[in-house]
Amino acid sequence: MIVPIDFVLLFFLLVTAIAAITLKDLFAAIVLLGAYSFIMANMWLQLGASDVAFTEAAVGAGTSTALMVAALSRLSRKARWEK
């Protein structure tokens, strides 16, 4: 692993995770979850797990995001503002 790249990737992981659960627009939250999955795939390449990395990029970032967008097209887009 290359340590500075690790720090940058882990920082962006935390930022995208917090943003994905905080945003009120559900479509933006889903897209941020896809970005989070791609950053996680990079992290796994850093850790020497290349097989997990491309499975995550295909299944976690691709298929899950597509499933969520397909479900969201049948739901209301905005999460209600919470106190």
Binding site: A17, A20, I21, L26, A29, I30, L33, Y36, G60, S64, M68, A71, L72, L75, A79, R80, E82
Partner: peptide
């Protein structure tokens, strides 16, 4: 803590 069910699913993924 999130009330929206899709938000709960995103949390479960994370």
């Amino acid at each position: 803590a999130k009330g929206n069910l899709l938000k709960k699913l995103i949390g479960l993924s994370i």
